[in-house]
């Protein structure tokens, strides 16, 4: 799915200067579709990325102590995040080139927003993020919630166990619920089944 201009971009900012943070936040918020998280410590960044599913990190390169190694480690751990360097002083170009994107502080607001968006489009994978369960997935969910095992579901729906497992994977991805008890509760709460 393409990142459209209407979708919010969850972005973390790590920058020691409050003036710069406020300026940048204003620019991004005016563009209208950024959720911003101000992160105070590098040590705290991973938690933010995981908890808030951040898509973009804008960071003052100074904060990684110019350590290309640390950046490589972070990038490897979070391959889907767009890593942007906010540049307003001199850094070793070899280090800067490791970032996915460099934002010179002299850039115009439109350029900044556009650069981030286009980077994001390049990196977003073609996954269908639709949260609606398909009719077939609902069938599988109903049988699961009634306590059927994969094999029994396969027999009842006349499909292979492999297909059942694949439906289950999709259900988990869409609902965020994996265990059988959890899925039963989900099905009951959403009136997919009645007991």
């Amino acid at each position: 799915m393409k990142q459209s201009d209407k979708e919010t971009v969850r972005t973390g900012i790590l920058e020691p200067s409050a003036i710069v943070v406020n300026g940048l936040s204003n620019i991004l918020l005016k563009a209208g579709n950024f959720d911003l998280y101000k992160i105070d410590y590098v040590a705290d960044m991973q938690r933010y990325i995981t908890a808030n599913k951040l898509q973009v990190i804008i960071i003052n390169p100074q904060l990684l102590q110019q350590s290309a190694k640390e950046l490589a480690h972070l990038k490897q751990k979070n391959p889907d995040v767009v890593w942007c360097a906010l540049v307003y002083s001199f850094f070793d170009p070899n280090y800067l080139n490791q970032f996915d994107l460099q934002i010179p502080i002299t850039d115009s607001p439109t350029d900044i927003v556009e650069a981030i968006r286009s980077k994001l489009n390049n990196e977003t994978a073609d996954t269908d993020l639709s949260m609606q369960l398909s009719d077939r997935e609902l069938d599988v969910l109903r049988l699961l919630a009634q306590g059927n095992m994969n094999k029994e579901i396969a027999d009842k729906l006349n499909i292979s166990v492999h297909t059942v497992i694949s439906h289950r994977k999709n259900i988990t991805q869409k609902t965020g619920i994996k265990t059988q008890s959890g899925l039963t509760i989900y099905a009951l709460s959403n009136k997919i089944i009645n007991i």
């Binding site: 965020g176 619920i177 994996k178 265990t179 959890g182 509760i185 989900y186 709460s189 959403n190």
Partner: peptide, 16 residues
């Protein structure tokens, strides 16, 4: 960790 998270999520998101 996973199960605890799921329990929380069920209580917050679904169970009336």
């Amino acid at each position: 960790n996973y199960k605890l998270d799921e329990l929380k999520s069920l209580l917050i998101k679904y169970i009336s």
